[in-house]
Design a protein around this nucleic acid. Sequence first.
DNA 1: AATGAATGAGTATTCATTCAT
DNA 2: AATGAATGAATACTCATTCAT
Lengths: 194, 194, 194, 194
Amino acid sequence: MGKKAAIIHSAIEVFQEQGIEKTKISDIVKRAGIAQGTFYLYFPSKLSLMPAIAEVMVAKTIEIVKDTVDNDASYPKQFEQMVDAIYEVNREYYEILAVIYSGLASTEHIREWESVYAPFYEWVSEKLEAAKKEGAIRQSIKPDRTAKLIIGLVESTAEQVFLYAQHDENEANRQKEEVLEFLAYALHFQNVEG
Amino acid sequence: MGKKAAIIHSAIEVFQEQGIEKTKISDIVKRAGIAQGTFYLYFPSKLSLMPAIAEVMVAKTIEIVKDTVDNDASYPKQFEQMVDAIYEVNREYYEILAVIYSGLASTEHIREWESVYAPFYEWVSEKLEAAKKEGAIRQSIKPDRTAKLIIGLVESTAEQVFLYAQHDENEANRQKEEVLEFLAYALHFQNVEG
Amino acid sequence: MGKKAAIIHSAIEVFQEQGIEKTKISDIVKRAGIAQGTFYLYFPSKLSLMPAIAEVMVAKTIEIVKDTVDNDASYPKQFEQMVDAIYEVNREYYEILAVIYSGLASTEHIREWESVYAPFYEWVSEKLEAAKKEGAIRQSIKPDRTAKLIIGLVESTAEQVFLYAQHDENEANRQKEEVLEFLAYALHFQNVEG
Amino acid sequence: MGKKAAIIHSAIEVFQEQGIEKTKISDIVKRAGIAQGTFYLYFPSKLSLMPAIAEVMVAKTIEIVKDTVDNDASYPKQFEQMVDAIYEVNREYYEILAVIYSGLASTEHIREWESVYAPFYEWVSEKLEAAKKEGAIRQSIKPDRTAKLIIGLVESTAEQVFLYAQHDENEANRQKEEVLEFLAYALHFQNVEG
DNA sequence: AATGAATGAGTATTCATTCAT
DNA sequence: AATGAATGAATACTCATTCAT
């Protein structure tokens, strides 16, 4: 019946509405339509919910990024699409993402963090690898490391804009432009088809 | 005297030692050597401590950055020194910084965050402005926006390394190298004296 | 079973023993044999206990009054018995009654007070109605209003005697005599069987 | 300068506005325009303020009663004026009087209560004595005891009306009428000048 | 697997009172 | 007499977790 999924789904919604600190287990189970005790059949504690949510959020991000990026477009275009997608996800889920970024709210679950983010790093890394092979970006790029740089760069600026500038669309777009130009120079895009 | 400062100082220490969640007001006042009630003469609540702590930490960061950066060195060198300094601060205070990020994000003190970080943004912005004027970096750089990019980039990667990779020095240095190269291309350093 | 009743019962006892101000929730639950949190499943706050206690006390008063009054006796005799009964209850529960008066008055539970006292007013009112019909008291009596007068009169003098005169039995009896005579004239008892 | 009087005056005002439970010493001294510590130069504790307030309130009541009652009027008229006056005071100060009636909110100061109320009892008692001497009321009246009865009767019904019926003027007047008639029969007014 | 009533440890906050100035 | 910063004891209430059904 997917009660586990129901709990995660419910938690994401409630967290978004009232913040994580103020959310009680009872709020989550109420919305999920299950009993208080049932929660503990699927999660050993409240905190153990976090990695599961992070996983879902990262998966959601990857999905949107994949859907947005056109693999047949030029690499500059593809990275632009990627930045667009990440900004989009942040626009919608800025509050819950803030918690995920800040280390899952406690240092207990740090180990899991790496594994949760791994698929995202990997996807960007592969994209960089391919671009490098085709000579579309500078050859000194180390895909694995740069993947982390790029994700850190884009997400931290997106967070700044949506969390602290409170959804000023103009501001968001201008900052995104700057990120794209910054990224273009940093990767040193080559006109491959020249 | 300076009980407010004593509280902040004490709180930073205790937070570092046992994490924010597990820290009681009583722990903070005990170390500060004041009475429980005195805390509330200076701060209306436990959470309202956060922006004050953040302010101190940012001030500390700026101070270290300023001390490390040699204004007479070449700009690439200066930015390298800046990255070194930021990594240094994160190495030492990674836990309290994580706490600040999450503490500020999860409460209603977000507005204050901008003003707390402002002096840091400003310093980097001025540095970029000067470099731009001297033709040391590409002219399309917008100092204000790029300052935020750079700080976001450096801090997020530093956090990744020290919080999640748990102080692997090798890893830290390699990642820092990649950041520096990334930054060099992104700013498009010019050999001014050529 | 009956945890709500257990809480009320326990609270009445503890209040009587140590006064309301000095009674902690923990005292109440300890005696009731339940956990601290369980209290809040049945009452939203400490103060919300008061109307429930008042209800029980008024019910107890009515019960004793009904038990004491002989419906076949003459009306003067019946009212004498009623006064006796009210004095009796005040003798035994003077402290908790003072608490209820002050507890109810000083909070926002005033509205409930009326409904709590209603059955007592009603009982006296019906008694007056019957007496009036039989011509045992003056015909200008308005039962509803006079019921409130009588209860106010008797309870306020009983409170004066037991709370302030500290259980001086002689004093109590003399004052009761005066009340009865006062009441006799006020109601203008008629010798019905004359 | 009358700081003691200023404190009492201020306390009465604040109590009326926000209730006694919710009033802090700091509220009282703020309005009185004095420092926190100064309070304790005049009163040893918060609770010790109560009898002083009661004294002022009773004095105020007596004053208004004396001002209202025309000593040259007939006794029925005089008692009517007295009831009017007591209702008037209760209309204005119902909240603070509720606390005073209910035993000064705690049983600590009971002894003082009697002495505080004494002058009021005395005044009524003397009035009854005089009326009795002139044959204006029944000769079986015991002035001392009946004084307490009358004050208890009038004040308790006034309280019922103003505290619980929430200032319904119509209700107040009808109830007052009933009290007067009740009183007239109870005292058994004689037409002295017949 | 599911329930939800019951648990009880845990702590931020208040505010009457003190006392050095 | 006056101040007001400092004190610290005292406790109502919350909510994650358990467990009998």
